[in-house]
Design a protein around this nucleic acid. Structure first.
Lengths: 182, 182
DNA sequence: TTGAGCGTTCAGAATATTCTAAACGCTCAG
DNA sequence: CTGAGCGTTTAGAATATTCTGAACGCTCAA
């Protein structure tokens, strides 16, 4: 691998490692493929990155799932070949939907479950007072309000629509209890 | 801790673990504080979550840095007390600036460094042919084009301005070599 | 029908991360 | 001063993640 590619592979690997989306190795694989004019076999990728084939096999699967890498059939070869995808917008959509929104919904689900436990579970020995319960309900409401707004915003964005920060910022005051709002 | 809180703490902890931003424990700490009407001491947090004080001490620092938790002085106590912040918009800004944009710039820097290596390092034994160099330059350009657009978009968004997906989507075709564009 | 050439699975080794408890240093009441 | 009561640092234990190489199963040319 030439020096420029090596630098790019290292740099993207480092960036990927702290991205929360890809692992360092996934970043390195993508970077390598991205600078290649042709698809590379699993074996070639493993050799270039000095990793075992099994590791590349498993790791590259994630890249295919994010639509960052495509498996392309090469005439006259039984080996799997991979090439980088270049539609970064598609990748971004995928990340927003499958990671961010999914994550938001996990949080929303947690809030809903807690709310339910609060309503029905009034009888436990550790049950919160009526006052505490009201406070907790308020907080859960607030979280739901904001997270739902973000979920909606991401949905609009991935559809290509416009989204603005101001709207989200304006949700924040609504999260406060009515008597504290001004 | 009451059952509703326990459920919320677990749920948010699980969500946080896959967020790429917070660790599971950070999620749990935040969730606990978020449902409390008063600030808790380090010791109380550690006790509720069954963790050592040192671990909470270190972990909660990250939450304070993301502006998810505030350290609040409690009159008549020498202990540090913490309470959840509720300005999620502020947190989002922080994450977008300090994580996403910073990450994008790492990638942009990698592209620039590679480009530089390509320009000056034409003499190495492993140097790419003129043809390969042109291909690589094109790819690096493409990546820079998209990532710069995303960086700009995030910048606008955190300023409260509107941002739309369509604009980013339209960057993608520009990434292709001119002769392939239609 | 066989076996060479593949990718995948899997058990365990290597490595990185998270967590604890002891040691430390600071602050402030006595 | 001095020491009790804090939070922080740190060395190493506990745990989780990443990686390897051997074993496996599939496919297809011979």
């Amino acid at each position: 691998m030439d020096r420029a590619t090596a630098i790019f592979v290292d740099g993207i690997g480092t960036a990927a490692a702290t991205s929360g989306i890809l692992t360092q190795l996934q970043g390195r694989i993508f970077a390598l493929l991205y600078l290649q004019p042709r698809a590379l076999s699993l074996e070639e990728v493993a050799a270039e990155l000095q990793q075992s084939k099994s590791n590349i096999s498993v790791t590259i699967r994630g890249l295919v799932e994010w639509h960052l890498v495509r498996r392309t059939p090469i005439a006259g070869s039984r080996k799997d070949h991979y090439e980088a995808a270049t539609n970064f917008w598609r990748v971004m959509q995928e990340v927003m939907e499958r990671r961010f929104r999914w994550n938001l919904r996990q949080a929303l689900a947690a809030a809903s479950e807690a709310e339910r436990a609060l309503e029905q579970g009034g009888r436990g020995s550790d049950a919160p007072s009526r006052e505490s319960a009201a406070f907790i309900t308020g907080r859960l409401m607030g979280l739901r309000l904001f997270f739902t707004a973000v979920d909606t915003a991401i949905g609009a964005f991935t559809q290509g629509k416009a989204v603005d920060g101001e709207t989200l910022r304006n949700v924040v005051p609504l999260m406060a209890p009515a008597h504290k709002r001004r």
